[in-house]
């Protein structure tokens, strides 16, 4: 939005369309910035069933799976304690680097798998609710046809 021209009026519809087009084309291994996506249909959004997708634990996982920055923290300062801590950090980092890398990849894969499962469960729940509502509707239509037929029969009999 940094290149908005001078005094030209901003058209909200254009901005919304732009945002939607970006949301639709963004592709990444993980959901967009690790946030729940708008994949639920309206039925599930308004139902009483809580989508697993919105579960706080999954949100926490999204926010905290990446421990990469924590590995870079070696401390600062020139006190003997700080120097010792830095040396220890380097030794531990060098010795366990491969383990930490694998651990990081494992966490990422785990988060991705849990996320995929959550999406799938929500999709199934949505389909389940939709089928129930369809059944109710079909029953109502049968009832309506029955009522119409009875009314017609009575009309003919009368």
């Amino acid at each position: 939005m940094a290149d908005l021209p001078g005094d030209v009026r901003v058209d909200a519809r254009v901005i919304v369309d732009h945002i939607r087009s970006l949301g639709g084309t963004t592709s990444s291994a993980y959901p967009r910035t690790w946030l729940p996506q708008g994949t639920f249909d309206e039925l599930l959004e308004r139902s009483d069933r809580e989508p697993i997708h919105f579960h706080p634990s999954i949100h926490h996982l999204h926010q905290h799976w990446d421990r990469g920055p924590a590995r870079q923290l070696a401390g600062s300062g020139w006190s003997p304690k700080a120097i010792g801590r830095r040396l220890l950090s380097r030794v531990v980092g060098a010795a366990l680097d491969r383990y930490f890398t694998e651990e990081q990849e494992f966490r990422a894969a785990l988060a991705q798998a849990i996320d995929a499962i959550a999406y799938r469960v929500d999709e199934i729940a949505s389909a389940d609710e939709r089928s129930i509502v369809d059944l109710v509707r079909n029953d109502l239509l049968d009832l309506a046809r029955y009522v119409d037929e009875r009314v017609d029969e009575r009309g003919r009999a009368g």
Binding site: A12, I19, Q37, G38, T39, F40, E45
Partner: peptide, 9 residues
């Protein structure tokens, strides 16, 4: 203002 259809938007 802007508007949304779902949580992502």
């Amino acid at each position: 203002g802007l508007w949304y259809r779902n949580a992502g938007e």
